[in-house]
Design a protein around this nucleic acid. Structure first.
Length: 274
DNA sequence: AATATTTCCAACCGCTCAATA
DNA sequence: GTATTGAGCGGTTGGAAATAT
């Protein structure tokens, strides 16, 4: 038993939208706001599926959309977020105001992917395509986010401790991404955090992906973040307030379970991160 | 100038998940 | 607890535009 179709396909238009259809949709949403997409087409006098209306509005007609080429800074953010989140286009879009998930997905597939490959970087793993590509390795390292960089020297260490996932990794004091490793392309699933571990005051982040320092470096007790660093870290995870939804906080990526709240979610009153 | 090929992106499709009856 | 519904997501496709031959 599958889902029933979202609309009566026999009586709906498909394909490119006409100016008149666009105008109807814009007028309706201006007058009534975004609401029930299923009933919107009929109410707006459109022979379109509700899903199609939603897509058209979100990806093309919304007034806050940023048009034009992606900046170098946006490129960099997309690459960094992709190395952290993978193909979670909506989450990435949540951190690029005015850009849509569809736009970013298309841009990734047509530009960034190619750019990374031509630099010798695997766009899925963000690691060099071959181990001898030193220039590529350097390029990957440059996509690392280092939250420790801007921290005051004498800041007390607290809040966040990066912990190694794989204890059998070799010791290494550098803080670069794990770009030169030959490990599997996908990080292993992270075990859920215990409730006390997941509290906002003592977050134990088990990160195992290239965006952050190598496993071998953050296994050390010396790899701890100061309060300023942890603030920078959570600021990075936090999308603009205007677009923040339950699903957008990244704490679930870090092992938080349903019903737990990280400090981001608490600050937005979101008590049930996905 | 005509045709073939490639690139790009808007739109669609099928699926999952959360909410609700 | 289960079924249904609607919203939203990511992968894929179709076709227009750009470029090459």
């Amino acid at each position: 038993m599958g889902r029933s179709p979202c609309c009566e396909k026999a009586h709906t238009n498909k394909g490119a939208w006409t100016k008149e259809e666009d105008q109807r949709l814009i007028s309706y949403i201006r007058a009534h706001g975004e609401g029930c997409w299923r009933s919107l087409p009929k109410a707006a006098g459109l022979l379109r599926c509700g899903k199609s209306c939603r897509l058209r509005w979100i990806n093309y007609l919304r007034p806050d959309l940023k048009r034009g080429n992606f900046s170098d800074e946006e490129d960099e953010i997309i690459i960094k977020l992709h190395s952290l989140l993978g193909n979670k286009w909506s989450l990435i879009a949540g951190r690029l105001p005015g850009r849509t998930d569809n736009e970013i997905k298309n841009y990734w597939n047509t530009h960034i992917k190619r750019k990374l490959i031509s630099s010798g970087i695997d766009p899925q793993t963000h690691r060099p395509l071959n181990s001898t590509a030193t220039a590529a390795a350097a390029a990957v390292s440059s996509t690392c986010l280092d939250f420790r960089k801007s921290a005051p020297v004498n800041e007390p260490v607290e809040n966040i401790v990066y912990k190694s996932v794989a204890d059998n990794s070799s010791s290494n004091d550098d803080t670069k991404c794990n770009s030169s490793t030959t490990e599997e392309s996908q990080p292993p699933p992270r075990p859920p955090l215990k409730e006390e571990e997941a509290s906002a005051d003592a977050v134990d982040l088990e990160l195992s992906i290239g965006l952050f320092p190598s496993r071998s470096s953050y296994r050390s007790d010396s790899f701890k973040l100061s309060s300023a660093e942890s603030k920078a870290f959570f600021d990075f995870l936090r999308p603009p307030a205007a677009v923040m939804t339950k699903a957008m906080c990244l704490c679930w990526q870090l092992g938080f379970q349903k019903g737990q709240s990280c400090s981001n979610c608490q600050s937005y009153g979101l008590d049930r991160p996905r």
